[in-house]
Amino acid sequence: MTTMVQETAAPTTGSGAASRRHELAAFLRSRRERITPEQVGLPRGTRRRTPGLRREEVAHLSAVGVTWYTWLEQARDIHVSVQVLDALARTLMLDGSERAHLFQLAGAVDPTPAASCTGITDALRETLDQLDPLPACVQNSRYDILAYNRTYARLLCDLDAIPPEDRNCMLLVHTHPDWREAIVHLEETMRLMAAKLRASMAGHLSEPAWKMLVRRLQTESPEFRENWERYEIVAHRSKTKQIRNAHVGLLNLHHTDLWLGPQHGARMVTYTPVDEETRERLRKLHALAARPAVA
């Protein structure tokens, strides 16, 4: 596994900064100790004395150096990049509140759309709701899903069950079993999406959130690594898609991007039925999605 390059910064001064570092160290230790090896796919062994994960295991799973991570838990005055914070948050299985707390203690701004989902107004959410039973969502050019209606929530998987920071179409099509199963032409779709992402990334090469996404995809998906190295470029265009929904069967859909701002900004993605059979199946899917959850 490739180790992330650690950045260093000039020492910070002041009791406030020192207190934050000690609080960060304690927080990391507490979260490391609550995770069992089995939860992250590691063997427990017979000689384990450390509660939860060892430091070297967290470092390995997060692709950071063991010495550097040890310094972090020792409250050393070192700089923590947002890429490393994101990796630690995923390794330690932090929920939304814990992730926000981690970034706050580190004095960093979380670049994921889940942290600050700007531009999604009440009017836009109402528009999405009014489109039901047509599946619709709002995405940015990095494929983050910023908002969606009930039918879209059940179109490819149970999207409500996905943590907000992982609601990204690129990530889901390469790593989520249900999402992948629903795509009829999976290999073609992955190659096309990688080409679109590379085209969009030209204007965002220095942004941490973009680099975090590409690094994560390269780590978790051999298909993405292969397609990314092709250096193919494709612009966005409307098209017809086939989706094999787990609840209502095959759906033939027109995919349309409705841009909400500049070309590389957010867009509303809509799916309209190609045929009457698909239209009826979308009504059934919406009815299923609208049912209250069973406690």
Rank of each mutant, 00 (worst) to 15 (best):
L258R: 05
V269G: 00
H236F: 12
I243K: 00
N227E: 11
T240F: 09
M268D: 04
A235Q: 11
H247C: 04
W228N: 08
P262Q: 04
L258P: 00
E229V: 03
V269D: 00
G265L: 10
D257R: 12
S238W: 07
Y231W: 05
Q242V: 13
W228P: 03
V248N: 01
A235F: 11
V269H: 00
T240W: 05
I243M: 05
V248I: 04
E232A: 12
W259Y: 08
K239D: 09
R237Y: 09
N252F: 04
A246G: 06
W228K: 08
I233H: 14
A235D: 12
N227G: 05
R267S: 15
L250S: 04
Q263I: 14
V269E: 01
S238K: 14
T240Q: 15
P262A: 04
V248S: 01
A266R: 02
W259R: 14
D257E: 12
Q263C: 10
L251W: 01
H264K: 14
Y231H: 12
H247T: 06
T256H: 07
D257M: 12
E229L: 11
H236D: 11
R267C: 15
K239T: 09
Q242E: 11
L260G: 02
N245C: 10
T240I: 15
A235N: 10
N245E: 02
A266D: 08
L260W: 02
L250C: 03
N252R: 13
W259L: 13
L250Y: 00
H264L: 14
N227C: 12
N252D: 09
V248Y: 00
R237Q: 13
E232N: 09
E229K: 11
N252P: 02
G265I: 08
L258G: 02
P262S: 04
G249H: 00
L258K: 01
R244I: 02
N245P: 06
M268P: 01
I233E: 11
I243H: 05
H264R: 15
V248Q: 00
R230G: 04
R267F: 15
A246S: 14
L260H: 02
Q242I: 13
E232W: 01
G261F: 06
G261S: 11
W259V: 14
L250E: 07
T240M: 12
I243S: 01
G249W: 00
N227T: 07
A235W: 10
K239V: 06
G265Q: 06
L250N: 03
N227F: 13
R267H: 15
S238Y: 06
G265P: 08
V234R: 10
G249T: 03
W259M: 13
R267K: 15
H255K: 11
D257P: 05
A266N: 06
L253G: 01
L251M: 03
R237A: 14
H264V: 10
